[in-house]
Write a protein that binds this DNA or RNA. Structure first.
Lengths: 335, 335
DNA sequence: AAAATGTATGTAAACGTTTACGGAACTTTT
DNA sequence: AAAAGTTCCGTAAACGTTTACATACATTTT
């Protein structure tokens, strides 16, 4: 028997839908005998209420939309876990979507989430997104928005981010202290603010140590390993190759590691390497990867907390929040 | 201005909702002038149709539900990617949920998916699930079901799985051929059929080579790295430790690798190690991990294809499909 | 001039659920 | 015996959208 509705049950028992509804909700004003009959039949027919009907009727769906660039990235999947856990605890569902860093997909996803009438949206903006209309219209629609990790100042929404400048600074500082002289940086897509900040922090560390960053030691790549691998090969094949690299993320550092191995460069003897993120595989690499840690799980939790607080606040003008996580240096053996 | 409906637009333009609906759908029988007015206003107010209303009205939602044990596992996130891509191409959406291997969560998720009136469900069953009522009732409800990677014979649904017996056999065979004598196996949760099959294949390989599996060389663990790490420590601390380990998955192999490093055992000199899955990080480990590959992305694609074919088939008695992927030995340096 | 056709729009029902309101049939109070 | 209070259930509207059907007016055909 295909899916049944409250109407079907009502018809079968010769009672009204209102009574069925009340029985299912265990309301006070329904005869125990009737209640039992309803519950039994509902159980037998595997009745499950239609979330569409309820979503239509009530103004709230108790669902939040979550948009990440890609799901097969431990950093984001840990954020998802943190966010989901807090959301579930408060009785909210999470709809997960990935933009694949494609602008058109991101727009489409937002449209869908609006159509699904989610109570709020959490997003880490894709690297190709340059136009923010699709996000700023959420303000007019009164849908709370929280941006995590990849936020943008032109967008009206909460921000849960890292102090990327400081992280970059710490990375540079540590490489300098370890005595390296030819320090390079593989940066991310320049469209991302996070990329620019890590780079600026890194540059500041060099400046404070009266060191200079050679132009050829600053290169850009995407967060995909294949790209960073090629970039690293190029960088390490320079006439005067660097003796240290600060990679904008651990995934990029993995590409560097691969390139170094292919070029028979020993890490850390010939090349010091420091990443950013603190992926779970870091300690298992050879050598274990020195990195700047981001608290992904906690960022997910905090994102959910702020978003839900906004959603549940009766205050129309709920203030925008900014939460900045402090990155920590995680010393292992790659420097 | 908060979210508007077709009714709001109709009221503002002093026309009927039917006309607005027709205009938005670019139907033939609406005056160009009216059409223009509607489209303009809809655009200005950021109108997006309510998926709840449409889901209620139409019988189809063009959505499939996807349930994985955990999302922060590259194997599953690649499956998600494969499945999503095929689904998107055919105009379907995917709702992703994780059960965390917790039975109660799995049941709740299925209830939700039924409530959301998804057109079909794809699931990789959680390791703690012993009762399959929640899955078998989908047959009565006429909701197509596809199980990938972790399937169960008691459940009515399509299966997209690996030839786990053969994979186990290949792993055992390769370790034997490489000259190892004290070969151990770290198996997964014994509730999973996949675990039992890999183990049986492995045992068959030993048997065929007239080798014996010592009871203390067969241990069980979960797929989480922390557990496998401890299990490996115990195993490698036996009075007569194994000189080779077949780990039920790459994640488990990572735990073994960590344990070996802590015990100053060189891989592969003191200990040969072979995993299962072929995670992307495998080649980057030291040593690069030898493993049995599973075509995760392709499994995701195939799952979507079979499920969608079932969904779109007018045939009520669409035959159950079983697709078995052949595992391949991937030789690197850990053996 | 009547009939037929075409064009543009409106009416109303349907999807599944909740809930305010009303009312019938009892039971208790005076 | 009338009034008041309980207990249980039904009616109907609402949520947003689509669509079959009806309708009004204008235009063309006989």
């Amino acid at each position: 028997m295909p899916q049944v509705s409250i109407k079907d049950i009502a018809r079968m028992l010769n009672i009204s839908v209102a009574t069925v509804s009340r029985a299912l909700h265990d309301r006070y004003d329904v005869k125990p005998e009737t209640k039992l009959k309803v519950l039994e039949l509902a159980e037998r027919l595997n009745y499950r209420p239609s979330s569409h009907a309820i979503g239509l009727l009530k103004k709230r769906t108790h669902t939040i939309g979550l948009v990440v660039p890609e799901i097969d990235n431990q950093f984001f999947s840990e954020i998802i876990n943190g966010l989901e856990n807090v959301a579930y605890q408060q009785g909210y569902n999470v709809m997960i979507f990935q933009s694949q860093n494609i602008y058109e997909r991101e727009v489409k996803i937002i449209d869908q989430l609006i159509g699904a009438r989610v109570d709020g949206i959490a997003i880490s903006i894709g690297s190709s997104t340059q136009d923010f209309k699709h996000l700023n219209m959420l303000k007019d629609l009164e849908i709370p928005l929280a941006m995590f990790d990849r936020a943008n100042d032109q967008v009206y929404g909460h921000k849960i981010i890292n102090d990327n400048f400081e992280g970059g600074y710490k990375a540079g500082e540590f490489l300098i202290k370890s005595g390296r002289k030819r320090i390079a940086h593989i940066a991310g897509p320049s469209t991302l603010k996070l990329t620019r900040l890590r780079m600026q922090g890194f540059k500041a560390a060099l400046r404070d140590a009266q060191m200079e960053l050679r132009p050829e030691y600053l290169v850009h790549t995407t967060f995909r390993m294949e790209d960073s691998h090629q970039t690293a090969l190029d960088l390490l094949s320079l006439p005067e190759p660097p003796d240290a690299i600060f990679a904008v993320s651990d995934y990029v550092a993995l590409g560097v590691l691969k390139a170094a191995r292919e070029l028979h460069l020993h890490v850390p003897n010939n090349l010091a390497l420091i990443g950013f993120t603190n992926l779970a595989v870091g300690p298992l690499l050879e050598p274990p990867l020195t990195t700047i840690s981001q608290q992904s799980y906690e960022m997910g939790e905090e994102t959910a907390r702020i978003l839900l607080e906004n959603i549940e606040s009766p205050d129309k003008d709920f203030k925008l929040q900014t939460r900045i996580f402090k990155p920590e240096l995680v010393v292992r053996n790659s420097v």
